[in-house]
Design a protein around this nucleic acid. Sequence first.
DNA 1: CTAGATTTGTCCGTATGTATC
DNA 2: GGATACATACGGACAAATCTA
Lengths: 346, 346
Amino acid sequence: MSLYLTLKDEIVKQILNGTYKSGDVLPTEQALCQTYELSRVTVRKALEEMKKEGLVTSVQGQGTVVSFRKGAFTSSLEIIALVAAVHNPFFASFMEHFERVAEENGSLVLFKQDFQGQAFASHELYYRFIKKNIRNVVLWPQTEHIDFELLNRLRSIGMNLVLFDQLFETNVADSVGLDNRHAVTELYGQLRSGFEGEIIYIGYEGLNLPSELQRDQAFQEASGGKGRRFRIPWGGDVERETTALLLRLREEGVLPANLLCCNGPVGLAAARCLESFGWQDIALTVIDFLPEMAKYPMIVYQQPMREMAEKTYQRLIAQNNQGELWLPGRYPVQGEVLHVKGNGPQ
Amino acid sequence: MSLYLTLKDEIVKQILNGTYKSGDVLPTEQALCQTYELSRVTVRKALEEMKKEGLVTSVQGQGTVVSFRKGAFTSSLEIIALVAAVHNPFFASFMEHFERVAEENGSLVLFKQDFQGQAFASHELYYRFIKKNIRNVVLWPQTEHIDFELLNRLRSIGMNLVLFDQLFETNVADSVGLDNRHAVTELYGQLRSGFEGEIIYIGYEGLNLPSELQRDQAFQEASGGKGRRFRIPWGGDVERETTALLLRLREEGVLPANLLCCNGPVGLAAARCLESFGWQDIALTVIDFLPEMAKYPMIVYQQPMREMAEKTYQRLIAQNNQGELWLPGRYPVQGEVLHVKGNGPQ
DNA sequence: CTAGATTTGTCCGTATGTATC
DNA sequence: GGATACATACGGACAAATCTA
């Protein structure tokens, strides 16, 4: 490898591992010449490459500083990296649509399998992206423990980020996700207008993701603060926990009451429960549609996958075009109410 | 201006005016040094700028050649130039939507007023675009006399082009326009199912634009080759010519018959004619909606401006992302049938 | 296939201009 | 004004790739 590329790699490495932080002034060209025993031409060539890639900026009379960008990075949408649990059925559906949208527009989508958020939090992964000049990343955050500092560092050296599925209040990325207020309000309206009896919400305990909090809160608002909410622990066996909760509620006399389930797995577990115990006095509504749901009668709020994919792609376009003028935003999309008849288990 | 930028401008100028054509080998760095009496560093810096912009490519041991690209150019969508007759009401409507779509995604849209196609054919205009590194151009061709050679030369040095409103069979640009077959078929169906009597087509004489040809042909197909077609001369006073034609057809006994008008101005002229002569035995259908049409009863096929704008923008995205892999295409969009009641002239 | 000529790629030392502090 | 640091420019040298005789 040529001298100037070796030097460039050395400096990029130091920027990425924090030796030179965002906003720091690099050693002067003269100093770099002495440190690495290179001529000024070579040092300048290395710096020029980095300037071209937006990693540093130089001002005459002042020095060369590591880029510190609040805004987005003007790059190319040729390659987009998608970091997510690829085998999750919900994400698989999104992935399919997103890939179609991206490829219609000539973008190549690369996936990085994210097993339990390990890739999501991996410094190394993003460092490789930067080195390969991959500047567009779509993330699917499934945990509340997100290293926003890392994301912020990535943004500041020129990575465009879109968070998908959760509407975070953050200044490092655009987020595209379901309009949870709309979803809950629609389902609550369906239950209120079509069925008799109390409406209760079933959610997660100990899950602080925005979508769960927003749904919980929307339910409170829809019910005028009077609706009762019950929770199953996050991280356990959803099927078992849901069944246990419903049996307890039946014993305590809370049931029969109509159910509004916070997501697909909980809703599906509830549907199986109602089916097997023959509780036909309970109406079931769920946010998210899963294929297995076709067997059970319920009302589902279906996420508009194609629209979410388009909006996600559009946010990357916008970040690439707006550059420093970009401001982070939350982009909710609205789905549709689906009445599933239920053709019974096979 | 610095020496290397002056040299660069000089060479770019020669590429654009055809001194060096696409695929030609530039003089060697040594030769340029002698010709312009500059050091090799300076010459190389100028060439490097041009390489960065994709105007030339160089191979060691071989020389520096002027780029010859069949495909699109991978640039940035930060700036898009729109060359069109800005004050035309039809285009103004498109412009409004396009600007909205583009700015939602952070692109800046610049307009270049095109008076009777003069700007459209101006070498100078595009030269300036290239110099300012504006690589995305949307064109509204209103004449059949298009210098596709010029457009091809622009494409080959890295200009992305989208033709709007006409679906050309060309390999230099994507084209986005109305699905004329659908428009004519829909209107023909409306007349056949809702009204008695013959259906005749009114188009232009001597206008070889694709949209006119496609509409004429679609009418032939819809009518099974039996439908009579009449024409007014292109370029004259539409109002007067249309009135004259309709009066002649009445005299000759062709009218009463139901009308399918090729575009907005003709349709509007026909509507006024029917109104003033009180010919209520004639049903009127038109492709394109103009605001003044609200006064007259007619059936209009309305162009989907928002969708056209989105598709046009999407084609630019695709060209920028697909780069050399891009292949030109025709992208038709379908509109909707509008039943205008007509509230009478004020 | 080889040898030599050509052309770009990389690198060095040096000098002057210009913006910033 | 002076010191500092980047921007531009010059001349020279060798390496690597390519073409040609």
